[in-house]
Design a protein around this nucleic acid. Structure first.
Length: 600
DNA sequence: TTAGGGTTAG
């Protein structure tokens, strides 16, 4: 900050200082509103010293507060220097410092200050608690957070309007949303902020149904939702992939006039894209008056995940023309677009320009895109080398990406080499064993399949069960692979049996090589495949929606190859569009074809 | 018993 070039306002400040009548000086704090840099603050500080005002608590508090407007390492160091000069700080001064630290990269310092407050015999107030609890949240200091909660109870401050939502947010950040809920339930008359805190908590904890039911409760109590409410609720809809629900929320957004917020519009783009409606996402984007970096990025990601990589790239070029600076998220969308469309050259170009031209350091996710890009394109050895030579320690996810590529390109040897690298870091992920085992099964290496199965058993590893959901008449129905739990399961199974006959007549052949168990009879393999969660959800949609309706399904894992093939046939035979969201991307099935071009 | 912090949800 001190090296910043002199700005016009700085020059004028310097002039102001020069023209001052030192015999009859003004309060230097009058100069603060003009101050725009730490250097100017230093000048004002020296002037305060000159005029013997530097030891007044009010003056120092104001100066420190100014430093902490934008708390960086430099400004917090300066604030600390000012603070250290004061022999007897009062609670306001402590609060100002604590606020600064809680918003800086050193939140734990705020917790240390709280201890100082107590040891100096001062009584912490609502300001102290909000800052320090917030610091606990951002540094995930759960034990300290709980202790602060206790002290707040002792002082009768735990139901304070500012402290209460901060406590809720702290518990959520520390992964204890149920404790947050307990606080919430104790409140007799919750205000919107409190609802927002708990709704956000559920959303962040990936519990969208609870978030949405609290949103309905908020409306029943006639409380007016705010932009913050809508951001969380939209994010919950996106998690569920529930389009009708999302559209209803969009109506609420309009009704309460919250659509003017740029962040809300961006959340709408994200929601529509994640609920499978690219058209609605585009429409929100086109109606935006002002578009910032996150808005452009959301649209780029929307195109990329819906398999329209070239449009994503075109968006990026348009963004540049509009002189909006891309950030690391923008590049994530862009690289994602390249990898999912096999655009290796473009991918490398953008990856290099990221650091060269835009001075954005690639993160682990960007490297992940590059591994994916090389892997999908079949350049498996290059991808291996790429991970091995990274400047940062690779995560299991990075190796896992390569393992998937080995699987889709049928390279068992490299797959084995890769799984060893994964196991060095994490051997508890069931999916890894299954991918390699399926790969071995496909090429008939049953001894490897058995070995992997035994390894899984010995290590007590289980695979996350496949789960697909579909929203019909505002109800989200969930199906698990081989599901017998859903109330309509039996009739659904029968319907699937009949469906299979039709599909086979149209040329569909079940790909039983994907089934894990070697000793299974061919017939049983086929039955296992038939009741995959994707097929159950699609069949449910086929049976329970009018002809011609688009079937929208959300799956928790990657779509299985056989289900992908079945969905293509279903889209043709029944003349239905099927939009399937898997953990990676969207598949739009229409007239027997998929938007991913069988490339996923 | 003035000033100074003007808090919370994102």
């Amino acid at each position: 900050m001190a090296t910043a070039p002199p700005s016009p306002s700085m020059a004028s400040n310097a002039n102001v200082l020069r023209r001052i009548d030192t015999k009859n000086p003004p309060n230097p704090l009058f100069l603060l509103p003009k101050c725009t840099s730490l250097r100017e603050l230093e000048q004002i500080h020296s002037f305060a010293i000159k005029t013997h005002l530097q030891n007044y608590l009010s003056v120092v508090t104001k100066l420190i507060n100014f430093c902490t407007q934008n708390p960086t390492m430099t400004s917090m160091a300066y604030a600390q220097k000012l603070f250290d000069k004061i022999t007897e700080p009062d609670v306001v001064l402590y609060n100002t410092m604590a606020r600064g630290y809680s918003r800086s990269n050193y939140p734990r310092q705020a917790i240390a200050l709280f201890v100082l407050v107590l040891s100096s015999g001062l009584l912490p107030d609502d300001y102290t608690f909000t800052s320090v609890i917030k610091a606990c949240a951002s540094s995930k200091a759960f034990q300290e957070g709980k202790q602060l909660h206790c002290v707040a109870i002792k002082l009768g401050l735990d139901d304070n309007v500012y402290i209460c939502p901060t406590l809720i947010s702290m518990y959520t950040e520390c992964n204890d949303v149920d404790a947050a809920r307990q606080i919430f339930d104790k409140t007799s008359e919750p205000c919107v902020v409190l609802y927002n805190a708990i709704i956000t908590g559920y959303t962040r904890s990936s519990r969208p149904n609870e978030a949405l039911s609290l949103f309905r409760e908020l409306q029943l109590r006639n409380l007016k939702p705010t932009d913050v409410t809508m951001l969380s609720v939209l994010s919950s809809c996106a998690l569920l992939g529930a389009l009708d629900l999302g559209k209803w929320i969009h109506e609420c957004v309009k009704k309460f006039g919250i659509d003017k917020y740029i962040k809300v519009s961006t959340a709408l783009i994200d929601m529509y894209a994640k609920c499978g409606s690219l058209e609605d996402a585009i429409s929100v984007f086109e109606n935006m008056q002002v578009r910032d970096t996150p808005a452009w990025s959301a649209m780029i990601i929307a195109y990329a995940t819906h398999g329209q990589g070239h449009k994503a790239i075109a968006m990026f070029e348009e963004m540049r023309k509009a002189k909006v600076q891309p950030d690391e998220i923008t590049f994530l969308g862009l690289l994602y677009a390249c990898s999912h469309n096999g655009l290796v050259e473009e991918g490398w170009k953008y990856f290099s320009s990221m650091s060269d031209k835009y001075k954005i350091l690639p993160g682990i996710k960007h490297y992940g895109c590059m591994v994916d890009l090389l892997g999908r394109a079949g350049r498996l050895d290059d991808a291996f080398k790429f991970i091995d030579e990274l400047p940062i320690k690779p995560t299991p996810i990075l190796w896992r990406t390569l393992l998937s590529a080995c699987s889709s390109h049928g390279n068992v040897e490299l797959g084995k080499k890769v799984i060893k690298r994964i196991f060095r870091l994490d051997d508890s992920h069931g999916g890894d064993y299954v991918i390699l085992s399926n790969l071995c099964a496909r090429v008939g290496r049953w001894e490897d399949v058995d070995f992997l199965r035994k390894l899984m058993k010995d290590r007590g590893v289980v695979k996350v069960p496949g789960c697909s959901s579909i929203e019909v008449n505002n109800v989200v129905h969930e199906f698990f692979s081989g599901d017998g739990v859903h109330s309509t399961a039996t009739s659904l199974h029968q319907a699937l049996d009949e469906l299979m006959i039709e599909l086979k007549m149209a040329g569909y052949e079940p790909d039983t090589s994907l089934v894990f168990h070697a000793e299974m009879e061919e017939k049983d393999k086929e039955i296992t495949l038939r009741y995959h969660s994707e097929k159950l959800a699609i069949a449910y949609g086929l049976l329970n929606t009018p002809p011609g309706t688009t079937i929208r399904v959300v799956k928790n894992l990657r779509v299985c190859g056989d289900c992908h093939s079945a969905a293509k046939h279903i889209s043709m035979i029944f003349d239905r569009q099927i939009i399937l969201r898997d953990v990676q991307r969207f598949h739009h099935f229409k007239n027997g074809k998929c938007s991913c071009g069988d490339f996923w």
